[in-house]
């Protein structure tokens, strides 16, 4: 297991975040720093990562665990390189999200919450992401992919595969 340690750049970012709050209120930095940690350490939060964040912010580990387990964006187990988070709430459902989810399942041969054998893709269903007018949709990394159709899903999968091959 590699040592969990932020780069110099990320450590500066942590300092910058802590400076947003009054003296002694660095606990407020917890959620932003967990986002940074998830990004830096493989897209999920291991116990080691959470302990590291606790040390950085001078918190008890339990204070970090209880927050990490509350918020749905924090992944507590490893995920694929490309995480498809497909919205399934009412407005997306009336616009055909069920069919899109089924299409992705068949196309990738995985169920919801599963990762493809090559470790590239994970499918997750999520609740409303605030893109109801552009449904069906999914989040992929930092951005939204909207107005999904089977053809668009094919394009996205191909795009991810070619990115993975390039690396």
């Amino acid at each position: 297991m590699a040592v969990v340690q932020f780069s110099e750049e990320k450590l500066n970012k942590v300092k910058e975040i802590i400076a947003r709050y009054p003296e002694g209120k660095q606990k407020s930095a917890l959620i932003p720093v967990l986002h940074l940690a998830q990004e830096a350490f493989g897209g999920w939060l291991s116990a080691e990562t959470m302990d590291y964040v606790a040390t950085l912010l001078q918190l008890q580990s339990i204070e970090v665990y209880e927050v990490a387990t509350f918020y749905s964006m924090f992944n507590l187990k490893p995920v694929g390189t490309y995480l498809f988070e497909v919205c399934q709430t009412g407005p997306c459902m009336v616009s055909g999200s069920d069919q899109i989810i089924d299409y992705i399942k068949n196309k990738l041969g995985i169920g919801v919450g599963e990762t493809t054998a090559d470790g590239l893709f994970t499918l997750k269903t999520v609740e409303c992401l605030g893109a109801c007018g552009y449904a069906p949709m999914m989040q992929l990394g930092k951005h939204y992919r909207e107005h999904l159709t089977p053809a668009k899903v094919d394009e996205i999968i191909a795009e991810c595969r070619s990115k993975a091959n390039a690396n």
Binding site: H35, S72, M73, F74
Partner: peptide, 10 residues
């Protein structure tokens, strides 16, 4: 003014 991101909780 500071921007703070949440992490997925209605």
């Amino acid at each position: 003014i500071y921007v703070q991101r949440g992490a997925g909780a209605y």
